[in-house]
Design a protein around this nucleic acid. Sequence first.
DNA 1: CTGTTAGCGCATTCAG
DNA 2: CTGAATGCGCTAACAG
Lengths: 363, 363
Amino acid sequence: MAKPPAGKSVSKARERALAPVEHRKPTMSDVARLAGVGTMTVSRVLSGTARVSAETAVRVQTAIDQLKYRPNVLARAFRGQRSHSIGLILPYLYDPFFASCAHAVTTVAREHGYSVIITTSNEDPETEFAEADEMLQRHVDGVLVIPSRIRHSRLARSLFGKTPVVAFDRPVPDPSIDTVLVQNAIGSRRITEHLIEHGHRHITYIALSRSLFTISARFAGYRRAMQDAGLEICPIFDCTSEEMAEQILKLKMEHDTPPTAVITSNTLVTRYVLGAVSRLGLRVPSDLAFAGFDDFDLAEFTSPPLTVVRQPAQEMGRVAANLLFDRIARGETPHSGNRIVLPVEIVLRRSCGCKHRAPVVIH
Amino acid sequence: MAKPPAGKSVSKARERALAPVEHRKPTMSDVARLAGVGTMTVSRVLSGTARVSAETAVRVQTAIDQLKYRPNVLARAFRGQRSHSIGLILPYLYDPFFASCAHAVTTVAREHGYSVIITTSNEDPETEFAEADEMLQRHVDGVLVIPSRIRHSRLARSLFGKTPVVAFDRPVPDPSIDTVLVQNAIGSRRITEHLIEHGHRHITYIALSRSLFTISARFAGYRRAMQDAGLEICPIFDCTSEEMAEQILKLKMEHDTPPTAVITSNTLVTRYVLGAVSRLGLRVPSDLAFAGFDDFDLAEFTSPPLTVVRQPAQEMGRVAANLLFDRIARGETPHSGNRIVLPVEIVLRRSCGCKHRAPVVIH
DNA sequence: CTGTTAGCGCATTCAG
DNA sequence: CTGAATGCGCTAACAG
């Protein structure tokens, strides 16, 4: 019974002795042996968690450099420390808006010495849930999420235990989760007002699924502006393809009092409607004025250049990530979450009827 | 000396006994105890690595379900197994082309039960190198990379040891690394030929940094087509802003024999030139015909709709990821890497001078 | 200031 | 077919 421990260390020592230059990643005890100290000292030098005499510190550092030792992240994480990784769940990556958010997140994460595990939910609450769970299995230190359809979201504080979570772009039912949003309703309302100022009375709102938070918030802003002006609203939801946009628009334009302006709920629908407009031979803005939600790189070069509400995608990613790292650093899980709302800008180009040669940005 | 082992197991057992319902993730030994078997049996049931009698398997499974046990990924990875994660390094995420690649990669990874750790290099070889190293520290099972500027890339087989790597979109100096590319030169050549068929003799090629593989490969295709037609080439590199594009174009157009057509090296430059063209009041295609490399969502709605070479972004991501998973499954690190080249398509719209109402795609 | 001991959760030995 | 022992690399908790 007294033997095993002895036998163990002997065999271990021999193994090390026999294969000192073996091609194997150096471990902390390799460093310790070379520096003639205990592993704890090495650990302390690395983490700076306790004071070590300058002299030994140098010896250890030399050994580290000589061996090109790098601590094993996995072992550290396994030991119950931070994993120095966060999870990022978003619907799609091929949507430039989401991609910009993701870019900002990876950038902030690097600044904090963190890695990010990224995954797509395809707007499916089940996938989203499964991926969140998977990330928790991987012991991420925090999770950032652009939630899928809010009504069916299974994301809740309880799932995450004491792991911080922040939702952005869209909220989550659980109010104890931190959230970063943009002024969806306000942006939508202001652009609607702008169209009204151009003299439009019949403005239609064409949108994607109503079950998406952003879409319905933007609808609310549109409705508010219309009602305040004593105008009737004319919303159309579930426009999910260019063909559908064409059908819808055709029908609308044949109406007794056809719309003279259209507002789209997001880039995807903007694209559909742009296609429909072109196929129907409608001229913008004379036949139909046009304003969209969400700016994109080439909005300036469509014909005519597009007036849009611009959301600060990267800014939102940055703010959300910083908030998460704040929570991680403090080790706190708030009982009532923060709710940060970022301002949007209106970019006036020519599709709304403005005559500006260059875009005009209103804050 | 004989005591500690005994004391150890006693204290461990007591701890478990005292806190059987403690809020703590269940471990394999919790499951084993509940099922009345050894941990190894549980392990075997989980991995299916060895045969277990049907009866015990059921007991174990029941215990797993009851405890909602999920194996600890970190412990597994730490133990020297697969980490079931891959790394993905790319220049930017806000470039829709790269984002589409990334989307495909995450999708394929999920199909394989893998997580992906994503990071951006900002086209900086040093950052790229550091991030690759970081991923290796995290014991990823494989790495996918869209390399930054090839001339300065520090990525090599030796860095990765026996961890599989595949480069895509752009190659890496080390020929032993698997690579997935698209027909850059061929696509560029064909679109140049198309412009020549439209009767153009003076075609200029406006490009981003020459040190990017894709850009210079596309230049080669352009040059080849021009030379074959006995025409003089007229390339311009390092066009890095809209202002620069405007200056360049202005100068060119004031020349004795101004270009009648322009080819751009990628979406970014397409954007710059589009802006310059608009500011200079040039009409496309009558004053200047236009063709770009890389299709984008709204290319159909620019004025006029843009003729482009379309690269299969998602397809490339998928192929690269599948190749990587193949390597991981086989556990092999090839001595000479594969080199897969994916075909591109030419999308004829109207900026080249074609009169098609709808885009025509040539394979 | 420094070293020793112990164990995180799992899977690879090697005995039954 | 099954189980007990062992250690992956690291660090918290305690010695010294």
